[in-house]
């Protein structure tokens, strides 16, 4: 699979549109999901996805094969979304880690989240882009720590730390929302 995609990128670099279409079919959905998870705007995400593949078309010839095609493509998407956030000068973020949460209770909250996708989406939306990216790549794409670190351009320890904080924030948020719902 990986070698096949490497070949496709080489062909795209030579101007092969069909190879670009094949790459698009292979990666469109996961990359779009990754972008949506960070932007919460399907229309804007579709535009960014388009830009990602336009970039692939333009620079495929420079791909040297030192990374996997998947991490290369997700890396382009990762940086595109950062550009969007910069343009928006977006100030979101809940980087402050809350008080320690009752993990056993949070585990129940996590279980309930399976049926409460909107709570999960809400809580993901409260995370900073760095945290959300790490969670998205780890849990949507099941990437290794090394792959996520390569995409984000940071050491593996930073990714572990981001995931650790994101996890606490997510569990705290889910626990609070589900508790509130139970009270209501």
């Amino acid at each position: 699979m990986s070698e096949n995609h490497h070949f496709l990128v080489q062909q795209v670099g030579k101007g092969d549109k069909q190879a670009l279409a094949a790459l698009y079919r292979a990666y469109e959905r996961p990359v779009y999901k990754f972008i949506v998870s960070r932007l919460n705007d399907p229309h804007e995400a579709a535009d960014i996805l388009h830009e990602v593949f336009m970039d692939i078309w333009r620079v495929a010839a420079t791909f040297e094969g030192r990374s996997q095609v998947r991490t290369w493509i997700f890396g382009i998407a990762y940086r595109k979304v950062i550009d969007v956030h910069r343009k928006r000068s977006r100030v979101t973020v809940t980087d402050e880690v809350p008080e320690p949460v009752d993990v056993a209770e949070a585990a129940d909250a996590g279980y309930a989240a399976k049926q409460e996708a909107e709570h999960l989406a809400f809580c993901m939306g409260t995370l900073s882009d760095d945290h959300r990216s790490a969670v998205s790549l780890a849990f949507y794409e099941d990437m290794t720590c090394a792959e996520i670190a390569e995409i984000a351009g940071v050491p593996e320890g930073t990714i572990k730390s981001r995931l650790h904080h994101a996890k606490k924030l997510l569990l705290h948020c889910l626990s609070g929302r589900l508790k509130g719902r139970a009270v209501a």
Binding site: V103, A106, A107, A109, G110, Y111, A113, K114, L120, F139, K167, L170, L171, L174
Partner: peptide, 8 residues
């Protein structure tokens, strides 16, 4: 914690 993460 592991269970919660798995459910998420």
């Amino acid at each position: 914690e592991q269970t919660a993460l798995a459910e998420i």
